[in-house]
Protein backbone atom coordinates (compact mmCIF):
# COMPACT_ATOMS: atom_id res chain seq x y z
CA UNK A 1 0.00 0.00 0.00
CA UNK A 2 1.07 3.52 -0.74
CA UNK A 3 2.46 5.33 2.28
CA UNK A 4 0.57 8.42 3.24
CA UNK A 5 1.90 11.93 3.55
CA UNK A 6 1.30 11.72 7.27
CA UNK A 7 3.61 8.76 7.65
CA UNK A 8 6.27 10.38 5.54
CA UNK A 9 6.09 13.52 7.63
CA UNK A 10 6.48 11.46 10.77
CA UNK A 11 9.46 9.68 9.32
CA UNK A 12 11.06 12.97 8.28
CA UNK A 13 10.50 14.41 11.73
CA UNK A 14 12.24 11.49 13.36
CA UNK A 15 15.43 11.89 11.37
CA UNK A 16 15.55 15.69 11.25
CA UNK A 17 17.40 16.34 14.44
CA UNK A 18 19.50 19.00 12.71
CA UNK A 19 16.34 21.06 12.48
CA UNK A 20 16.29 21.38 16.23
CA UNK A 21 19.86 22.58 16.14
CA UNK A 22 18.97 25.24 13.56
CA UNK A 23 15.97 26.35 15.60
CA UNK A 24 18.24 26.91 18.56
CA UNK A 25 21.20 28.32 16.64
CA UNK A 26 19.38 30.96 14.57
CA UNK A 27 18.15 33.15 17.42
CA UNK A 28 21.59 33.06 18.95
CA UNK A 29 23.17 34.07 15.66
CA UNK A 30 20.70 36.93 15.19
CA UNK A 31 21.19 38.00 18.77
CA UNK A 32 24.93 38.24 18.22
CA UNK A 33 24.38 40.32 15.08
CA UNK A 34 22.01 42.63 16.94
CA UNK A 35 24.47 43.00 19.79
CA UNK A 36 27.04 44.21 17.29
CA UNK A 37 25.39 47.61 17.23
CA UNK A 38 26.12 47.87 20.94
CA UNK A 39 29.68 46.88 20.20
CA UNK A 40 29.91 49.68 17.63
CA UNK A 41 28.71 52.20 20.18
CA UNK A 42 31.14 50.90 22.75
CA UNK A 43 33.83 51.03 20.05
CA UNK A 44 33.06 54.68 19.37
CA UNK A 45 33.14 55.55 23.04
CA UNK A 46 36.27 53.50 23.68
CA UNK A 47 38.32 54.89 20.81
CA UNK A 48 37.23 58.43 21.51
CA UNK A 49 37.85 58.06 25.21
CA UNK A 50 41.27 56.41 24.90
CA UNK A 51 42.72 58.95 22.49
CA UNK A 52 41.03 61.81 24.32
CA UNK A 53 42.74 60.74 27.53
CA UNK A 54 46.03 60.66 25.63
CA UNK A 55 45.31 64.20 24.51
CA UNK A 56 44.79 65.31 28.08
CA UNK A 57 48.20 63.99 29.09
CA UNK A 58 49.56 66.69 26.76
CA UNK A 59 47.07 69.47 27.40
CA UNK A 60 45.20 70.05 30.63
CA UNK A 61 41.47 69.48 30.63
CA UNK A 62 41.01 72.83 32.31
CA UNK A 63 42.79 74.69 29.50
CA UNK A 64 40.72 72.78 26.96
CA UNK A 65 37.31 73.68 28.37
CA UNK A 66 38.12 77.20 29.47
CA UNK A 67 40.55 78.32 26.79
CA UNK A 68 39.41 80.97 24.37
CA UNK A 69 42.16 80.49 21.81
CA UNK A 70 42.50 77.61 19.35
CA UNK A 71 45.89 77.73 17.66
CA UNK A 72 47.03 74.11 17.39
CA UNK A 73 49.33 74.82 14.44
CA UNK A 74 51.50 77.34 16.28
CA UNK A 75 54.90 75.71 16.45
CA UNK A 76 56.14 77.32 19.63
CA UNK A 77 53.15 77.99 21.75
CA UNK A 78 50.09 76.09 20.51
CA UNK A 79 46.86 76.66 22.41
CA UNK A 80 43.93 74.30 22.62
CA UNK A 81 40.94 76.17 24.00
CA UNK A 82 37.71 74.66 22.62
CA UNK A 83 35.61 77.84 22.77
CA UNK A 84 36.40 79.22 19.32
CA UNK A 85 35.38 75.88 17.74
CA UNK A 86 32.22 75.75 19.85
CA UNK A 87 31.32 79.28 18.88
CA UNK A 88 31.95 78.47 15.21
CA UNK A 89 29.78 75.37 15.46
CA UNK A 90 26.96 77.25 17.13
CA UNK A 91 27.20 80.20 14.77
CA UNK A 92 26.48 77.78 11.94
CA UNK A 93 23.78 76.03 13.96
CA UNK A 94 22.01 79.27 14.87
CA UNK A 95 21.97 80.55 11.28
CA UNK A 96 20.79 77.13 10.10
CA UNK A 97 17.97 77.02 12.64
CA UNK A 98 16.91 80.58 11.76
CA UNK A 99 16.41 79.33 8.20
CA UNK A 100 15.11 75.83 8.90
CA UNK A 101 12.68 76.35 11.77
CA UNK A 102 10.27 78.82 10.14
CA UNK A 103 10.47 77.24 6.70
CA UNK A 104 10.41 73.65 7.94
CA UNK A 105 7.43 74.29 10.19
CA UNK A 106 5.57 76.32 7.57
CA UNK A 107 5.97 73.44 5.12
CA UNK A 108 4.89 70.93 7.74
CA UNK A 109 1.73 72.91 8.55
CA UNK A 110 0.98 73.43 4.88
CA UNK A 111 1.44 69.77 4.02
CA UNK A 112 -0.47 68.49 7.02
CA UNK A 113 -3.33 71.00 7.25
CA UNK A 114 -3.79 72.78 3.93
CA UNK A 115 -2.45 70.74 1.03
CA UNK A 116 -4.76 68.55 -1.03
CA UNK A 117 -3.80 64.92 -1.45
CA UNK A 118 -2.68 65.65 -4.96
CA UNK A 119 -0.34 68.50 -4.13
CA UNK A 120 0.98 66.53 -1.17
CA UNK A 121 1.86 63.69 -3.54
CA UNK A 122 3.85 66.15 -5.64
CA UNK A 123 5.47 68.17 -2.84
CA UNK A 124 6.65 65.38 -0.57
CA UNK A 125 8.87 63.62 -3.12
CA UNK A 126 10.48 66.98 -3.97
CA UNK A 127 11.35 67.43 -0.31
CA UNK A 128 12.70 63.88 -0.30
CA UNK A 129 14.99 64.76 -3.19
CA UNK A 130 16.15 67.80 -1.26
CA UNK A 131 16.98 65.48 1.64
CA UNK A 132 18.91 63.17 -0.66
CA UNK A 133 21.32 65.76 -2.08
CA UNK A 134 24.81 64.82 -0.84
CA UNK A 135 26.31 67.32 1.56
CA UNK A 136 29.37 67.75 -0.62
CA UNK A 137 27.12 69.06 -3.41
CA UNK A 138 25.48 71.43 -0.93
CA UNK A 139 28.98 72.57 0.01
CA UNK A 140 29.83 73.38 -3.59
CA UNK A 141 26.48 75.18 -3.91
CA UNK A 142 27.22 77.24 -0.78
CA UNK A 143 30.67 78.20 -1.99
CA UNK A 144 29.93 79.00 -5.63
CA UNK A 145 26.32 80.20 -5.55
CA UNK A 146 25.11 81.30 -2.13
CA UNK A 147 28.28 83.14 -1.15
CA UNK A 148 28.38 85.27 -4.35
CA UNK A 149 24.64 85.87 -3.90
CA UNK A 150 25.17 87.00 -0.32
CA UNK A 151 28.03 89.23 -1.41
CA UNK A 152 25.52 91.33 -3.32
CA UNK A 153 23.69 92.02 -0.03
CA UNK A 154 26.60 92.12 2.40
CA UNK A 155 29.48 94.15 1.14
CA UNK A 156 32.94 92.93 2.10
CA UNK A 157 31.68 89.41 2.73
CA UNK A 158 34.75 87.20 2.38
CA UNK A 159 34.72 84.05 0.22
CA UNK A 160 34.81 81.94 3.36
CA UNK A 161 32.16 82.97 5.88
CA UNK A 162 29.69 81.46 8.30
CA UNK A 163 26.61 83.01 6.71
CA UNK A 164 26.27 81.05 3.48
CA UNK A 165 27.17 77.58 4.78
CA UNK A 166 24.87 78.30 7.73
CA UNK A 167 22.00 79.05 5.34
CA UNK A 168 22.76 75.94 3.30
CA UNK A 169 22.96 73.72 6.40
CA UNK A 170 19.55 75.13 7.25
CA UNK A 171 18.27 74.18 3.80
CA UNK A 172 19.71 70.72 4.28
CA UNK A 173 17.78 70.09 7.50
CA UNK A 174 14.46 71.53 6.28
CA UNK A 175 13.21 68.19 4.88
CA UNK A 176 13.97 66.39 8.13
CA UNK A 177 12.18 68.97 10.27
CA UNK A 178 9.26 69.06 7.85
CA UNK A 179 8.72 65.34 7.64
CA UNK A 180 9.15 64.63 11.36
CA UNK A 181 6.90 67.55 12.35
CA UNK A 182 4.32 66.55 9.79
CA UNK A 183 4.37 63.02 11.16
CA UNK A 184 3.71 64.40 14.63
CA UNK A 185 0.88 66.57 13.30
CA UNK A 186 -0.65 63.60 11.50
CA UNK A 187 -0.76 61.76 14.80
CA UNK A 188 -3.34 64.26 16.02
CA UNK A 189 -6.59 62.39 15.39
CA UNK A 190 -8.88 63.75 12.69
CA UNK A 191 -11.79 63.59 15.14
CA UNK A 192 -10.15 66.24 17.30
CA UNK A 193 -9.84 68.51 14.25
CA UNK A 194 -13.40 67.78 13.19
CA UNK A 195 -14.59 68.89 16.60
CA UNK A 196 -13.07 72.31 16.05
CA UNK A 197 -14.22 72.59 12.44
CA UNK A 198 -17.75 71.80 13.55
CA UNK A 199 -17.60 74.88 15.78
CA UNK A 200 -16.68 77.00 12.78
CA UNK A 201 -12.92 77.28 13.27
CA UNK A 202 -10.77 78.18 10.26
CA UNK A 203 -7.89 75.98 9.20
CA UNK A 204 -5.43 78.45 10.71
CA UNK A 205 -7.20 78.31 14.05
CA UNK A 206 -7.28 74.53 13.98
CA UNK A 207 -3.58 74.43 13.08
CA UNK A 208 -2.51 76.89 15.76
CA UNK A 209 -4.87 75.97 18.58
CA UNK A 210 -5.43 72.25 18.07
CA UNK A 211 -2.76 70.66 15.91
CA UNK A 212 0.37 72.43 17.10
CA UNK A 213 -0.40 72.11 20.82
CA UNK A 214 -1.37 68.48 20.22
CA UNK A 215 1.86 67.67 18.48
CA UNK A 216 4.09 70.08 20.33
CA UNK A 217 6.54 67.59 21.77
CA UNK A 218 6.87 65.85 18.41
CA UNK A 219 7.66 69.18 16.79
CA UNK A 220 10.17 70.11 19.47
CA UNK A 221 11.78 66.71 19.11
CA UNK A 222 12.13 67.22 15.33
CA UNK A 223 13.78 70.60 15.96
CA UNK A 224 16.24 69.11 18.44
CA UNK A 225 17.16 66.39 15.93
CA UNK A 226 17.59 69.05 13.24
CA UNK A 227 19.85 71.05 15.54
CA UNK A 228 21.87 67.94 16.26
CA UNK A 229 22.40 67.37 12.55
CA UNK A 230 23.39 70.99 12.03
CA UNK A 231 26.03 70.63 14.75
CA UNK A 232 27.40 67.44 13.24
CA UNK A 233 27.34 68.65 9.62
CA UNK A 234 30.81 68.49 8.16
CA UNK A 235 31.21 68.87 4.41
CA UNK A 236 29.23 72.06 3.87
CA UNK A 237 31.23 73.92 6.50
CA UNK A 238 34.50 72.35 5.41
CA UNK A 239 33.90 73.58 1.88
CA UNK A 240 32.50 77.03 2.49
CA UNK A 241 33.14 78.26 6.05
CA UNK A 242 36.93 78.47 6.00
CA UNK A 243 39.26 77.44 8.77
CA UNK A 244 39.69 80.40 11.09
CA UNK A 245 38.82 79.62 14.69
CA UNK A 246 36.87 82.70 15.69
CA UNK A 247 35.32 83.41 19.05
CA UNK A 248 31.89 85.06 19.17
CA UNK A 249 28.92 85.23 16.83
CA UNK A 250 30.58 86.38 13.62
CA UNK A 251 28.42 85.31 10.68
CA UNK A 252 30.19 87.47 8.15
CA UNK A 253 33.65 86.16 8.91
CA UNK A 254 35.55 82.99 8.22
CA UNK A 255 35.11 80.54 11.10
CA UNK A 256 35.94 76.98 12.03
CA UNK A 257 33.59 74.36 13.46
CA UNK A 258 34.49 71.25 15.42
CA UNK A 259 33.75 69.07 12.41
CA UNK A 260 35.74 71.13 9.93
CA UNK A 261 38.72 71.13 12.31
CA UNK A 262 38.67 67.34 12.40
CA UNK A 263 38.57 67.24 8.61
CA UNK A 264 41.33 69.80 8.30
CA UNK A 265 43.67 67.75 10.49
CA UNK A 266 42.86 64.44 8.89
CA UNK A 267 43.51 65.89 5.44
CA UNK A 268 46.83 67.27 6.57
CA UNK A 269 49.88 65.31 7.62
CA UNK A 270 49.57 65.34 11.39
CA UNK A 271 51.94 62.71 12.72
CA UNK A 272 50.37 59.76 14.46
CA UNK A 273 50.83 60.30 18.19
CA UNK A 274 51.31 64.06 18.05
CA UNK A 275 49.24 66.44 20.14
CA UNK A 276 47.43 67.62 17.02
CA UNK A 277 46.60 64.02 16.13
CA UNK A 278 45.08 63.41 19.55
CA UNK A 279 43.27 66.74 19.51
CA UNK A 280 40.82 65.54 16.83
CA UNK A 281 39.63 62.88 19.28
CA UNK A 282 39.11 65.42 22.05
CA UNK A 283 37.14 67.57 19.63
CA UNK A 284 35.32 64.50 18.30
CA UNK A 285 34.42 63.50 21.84
CA UNK A 286 33.00 66.96 22.52
CA UNK A 287 30.99 66.77 19.30
CA UNK A 288 29.80 63.25 20.12
CA UNK A 289 28.64 64.30 23.59
CA UNK A 290 26.70 67.27 22.23
CA UNK A 291 24.90 65.24 19.57
CA UNK A 292 24.30 62.30 21.91
CA UNK A 293 22.68 64.51 24.53
CA UNK A 294 20.46 66.07 21.88
CA UNK A 295 19.44 62.72 20.42
CA UNK A 296 18.59 61.34 23.84
CA UNK A 297 16.66 64.52 24.57
CA UNK A 298 14.75 64.28 21.28
CA UNK A 299 13.96 60.63 21.92
CA UNK A 300 12.77 61.41 25.39
CA UNK A 301 10.54 64.26 24.29
CA UNK A 302 8.95 62.31 21.43
CA UNK A 303 8.37 59.24 23.62
CA UNK A 304 6.44 61.41 26.01
CA UNK A 305 4.10 62.74 23.35
CA UNK A 306 3.36 59.27 21.97
CA UNK A 307 1.56 58.44 25.16
CA UNK A 308 -0.96 61.23 24.65
CA UNK A 309 -3.12 59.59 21.98
Amino acid sequence: MKITIRERIKKNKAKQSYQNTIEKAMPLLFFLMASLSILVTLGIIYTLLRETIMFFTHISLFDFITGTEWYPFFENNPSYGIWPLLSGTFTIAIIAMLVAVPIGLASAIYLSEYASDRSRRILKPILEVLAGVPTVVYGLFALTFVTPLMQTFVTDLPIFNALSPGIVVGIMIIPQITSLSQEAMNAVPQSVRDGAYALGATRLEVALKIVIPGSFSGIVSSLVLGLSRAIGETMIVSTAAGSTPNLGFTPTESIQTMTSYIVQVSMGDATFGSTIYYSIYAVGMTLFLFTLIMNILANHISRKYREVY
Binding site: L48, L225, R229, L292
Partner: peptide
Protein backbone atom coordinates in the same frame (compact mmCIF):
# COMPACT_ATOMS: atom_id res chain seq x y z
CA UNK B 1 20.38 52.10 17.36
CA UNK B 2 18.27 55.24 17.43
CA UNK B 3 21.13 57.17 18.97
CA UNK B 4 23.68 55.64 16.62
CA UNK B 5 21.63 57.01 13.72
CA UNK B 6 22.25 60.50 15.08
CA UNK B 7 26.01 60.20 15.50
CA UNK B 8 27.73 62.56 13.02
CA UNK B 9 29.45 60.68 10.21
CA UNK B 10 32.74 62.36 11.03
CA UNK B 11 32.68 60.52 14.37
CA UNK B 12 32.11 57.22 12.54
CA UNK B 13 35.17 58.24 10.56
CA UNK B 14 37.19 58.56 13.78
CA UNK B 15 36.01 55.08 14.79
Amino acid sequence: LANLAGVPSVVFGLL
